[in-house]
């Protein structure tokens, strides 16, 4: 309950400002935190850690802070803004202009107008360009947690939430969609970097973990609300809302890879691979995570 109050306060700040103040700092802090997490915790007994997380989840059952981002995203969807002073209500997320419900569990998919397979976030940026007059390339280059990227995350949270409880069913009828899946599979198994890691190094076997963190097996359907079916998610450890693009970006960081472009074909192909593998899994996004 105390926590819910705290989030409500934080959320009020989020909702009132179109561009989050100090998010860049939060990002830097989050990175520092992420590094700190890799540091010794010799005396922390497993039971306490696990219990702590369970307790926290319970405490937040009636108030996932993601709700606040969802509400912000809904506002942004309907609000007129950008150089053309237009809303996104006519955005086609794959099921026709303005159709939001069910769109999330069918992405990434092929789009005729852009001649590309796109995921939720890259598609939202396309609509922000075509409908509102923003510059898609500029948004793609913007750091996570800054400028319009903050709004993309909130919008993605809203769109995902509108498909809560629905089951993943990505279309594979178009040759480009099948190809995206096949490329994604190859990216998933691609070993590289100074530590020889691939996605598969951590996510191709059931029941494995890094430290105490459980790792979803992503080469097949990992189950309802696991892996692809859980993001966007609110991360308790750094107090940030993360979309799938940032989730993948940070995976690559920890894989010791160079930097994947926002909405690049690598990230979208991985989305196709995980999304198709998750066929039938129920979406719980936006979820709450460690």
């Amino acid at each position: 309950m105390k926590a819910a109050l705290l989030w409500a306060t934080v959320g009020a700040a989020l909702l009132t400002s179109p561009v989050l103040p100090g998010v860049g700092q939060a990002q830097a802090q989050a990175q520092a935190q992420a590094q700190a997490q890799a540091q010794p915790r010799a005396q922390a007994p497993a039971k306490t850690t696990a219990d702590g997380i369970a307790e926290y989840r319970k405490m937040l059952e009636d108030g996932n802070p993601a709700d606040l981002f969802e509400a912000k995203g809904e506002g942004l969807w309907k609000q007129k803004c950008g150089p053309r002073n237009a809303s996104l209500e006519n955005c086609n997320l794959g099921k026709g202009p303005g159709v939001v419900k069910g769109a999330f569990v069918e992405l990434p998919r092929w789009f005729e107008d852009t001649q590309r397979v796109q995921d939720l976030e890259s598609r939202l940026v396309t609509c922000m360009e075509t409908l509102q007059g923003f510059n898609a390339t500029e948004i793609a280059k913007t750091e996570f947690g800054r400028g319009e990227q903050v709004n993309v995350t909130a919008l993605a949270t809203y769109i995902a939430a509108e498909s809560r409880g629905l089951r993943f069913n990505l279309p594979q009828a178009h040759p480009a969609e099948r190809k995206s899946y096949e490329i994604g599979k190859r990216v998933f198994f691609f070993r590289g970097g100074p530590m020889d890691f691939s996605c598969a190094a951590c996510h191709s076997e059931a029941g494995k973990r890094i430290r105490l963190q459980d790792l979803p097996e992503l080469t097949k359907n990992p189950g309802d609300g696991v892996g692809f079916a859980a993001w966007p998610a609110y991360r308790v450890s750094n107090g940030q809302m993360w979309g799938m693009q940032l989730r993948l970006n940070d995976c690559f960081r920890q894989q010791r890879f160079p930097f994947p472009g926002f909405g690049s074909d690598v990230t979208i192909a991985l989305g196709s691979y995980m999304g198709v593998n998750a066929k039938g899994a129920q979406s719980i996004a936006p979820a709450i995570k460690r």
Partner: peptide, 25 residues
């Protein structure tokens, strides 16, 4: 598809501080 995946990977990544694109070679 193998060949295309390599091309997609090469196009997607860029240098970021110490993490250079030679890491995907």
């Amino acid at each position: 598809l193998d060949r295309e995946a390599i091309a997609v990977i090469r196009a997607a990544f860029r240098d970021q501080n110490i993490a250079k694109i030679d890491r995907i070679q």
